[in-house]
C-alpha cells in the first residue's frame, strides 16, 4: 500500500514540477505548483511528518498560493514563449539540470549513509506530532523560532512598503507635501487628542458651528 501511495504522490510531485517549468501561462504554473505541493504533503505523511504535512497544505498550498494567484491576476498572465533569444542558454539549461541530478545522486550514493537503503529508524509513538514539534520549538530551537517570527514581521512590513502607491512623491513633487516643524506644535491650539480630531471631523464641526453663528449660508 505504501509503495502505491509513494508512486502516485511522487509522480504527482515530479509532474507538478515539470508543469511549473513547462506551462506558458503563469496562472497554470501556479496551479501546477499547488498540485505539486499537495503531492509533497502526501509524501510527508508517508515519512510520518504529520504536522509538516498539515502546515504544507494550510500555509503553502493555501495562503502562499492565494498570494500568487492574486499577483498573477493583477499583473496579467502574459503568454510568452519559454525562450526566444539565444538558443545557447535554452540548450545549456537542461544540460545543467541533468548534470546537477547526476551530481546529487553521486553525492547521496557516495555519502556512505547505511540507512539510505533502509526504511528508517523504528517508529516511536508521537514522532512528528504537533506535541513533539511544539516541545522542540520551545526548548531546543527557541532562538530560531523567535528569529523566524521577527523575519515574518520584517517581511510583512517590507512587502507593504514595496507595494504601496507612491503617487505623492512621484507625480506631484516634494514641495506639495505639507511639512510639520517643531514651531507648528507650539503655534497650533491644543486639541483634544481624539480620533475624531485626527480625522478632521472636529475641525469640520467647528467650521459648521462658526457658519451657523455668522447667520447661515
Amino acid at each position: 500500500m505504501a509503495e502505491v501511495v509513494f508512486f502516485v504522490a511522487s509522480l504527482g510531485a515530479i509532474g507538478g514540477a515539470v508543469g511549473v517549468v513547462a506551462l506558458r501561462n503563469p496562472f497554470y504554473s501556479v496551479l501546477a505548483l499547488v498540485g505539486h505541493l499537495l503531492s509533497l504533503a502526501a509524501l510527508f505523511l508517508l515519512l510520518r511528518a504529520e504536522f509538516v504535512a498539515a502546515a504544507q497544505v494550510v500555509v503553502y498550498a493555501g495562503a502562499v498560493m492565494v498570494l500568487y494567484v492574486f499577483v498573477v491576476a493583477y499583473i496579467g498572465g502574459a503568454d510568452r514563449p519559454v525562450r526566444t533569444t539565444g538558443p545557447g542558454l535554452g540548450l545549456a539549461a537542461p544540460l545543467f539540470a541533468g548534470a546537477l541530478f547526476v551530481e546529487l545522486c553521486l553525492a547521496m550514493l557516495g555519502s556512505g549513509l547505511k540507512a539510505i537503503d533502509a526504511q528508517g529508524a523504528p517508529y516511536e509513538a508521537g514522532f512528528g506530532s504537533p506535541g513533539q514539534i511544539g516541545e522542540l520549538f520551545l526548548t531546543r530551537f527557541l532562538l530560531p523560532f523567535e528569529v523566524a517570527s521577527y523575519l515574518l514581521l520584517i517581511a510583512a512590513v517590507g512587502a507593504v512598503i514595496l507595494a504601496r502607491r507612491r503617487r505623492g512623491l512621484e507625480e506631484e513633487g516634494l514641495e506639495d507635501v505639507p511639512t510639520v516643524t517643531v514651531a507648528d506644535l507650539f503655534r497650533l491650539e491644543p486639541g483634544v487628542g481624539t480620533q475624531a480630531e485626527s480625522g478632521g471631523m472636529l475641525q469640520d464641526r467647528r467650521e459648521r458651528d462658526e457658519r451657523e453663528r455668522k447667520g447661515g449660508w
Binding site: 515530479i14 503563469p26 505539486h36 510568452r80 539510505i116
Partner: peptide, 27 residues
C-alpha cells in the same frame, strides 16, 4: 527506502534549477 525519497527530491530540485535558467517571467 529512504533513497527513493531522496531521488524524488533531487529530481524536483533539478527541475526547479532548470526552470530558473529557462524561464524569463520573474513570477
Amino acid at each position: 527506502d529512504i533513497g527513493w525519497y531522496l531521488a524524488v527530491s533531487a529530481l524536483v530540485f533539478c527541475t526547479g534549477a532548470g526552470g530558473v535558467l529557462v524561464r524569463r517571467n520573474p513570477l
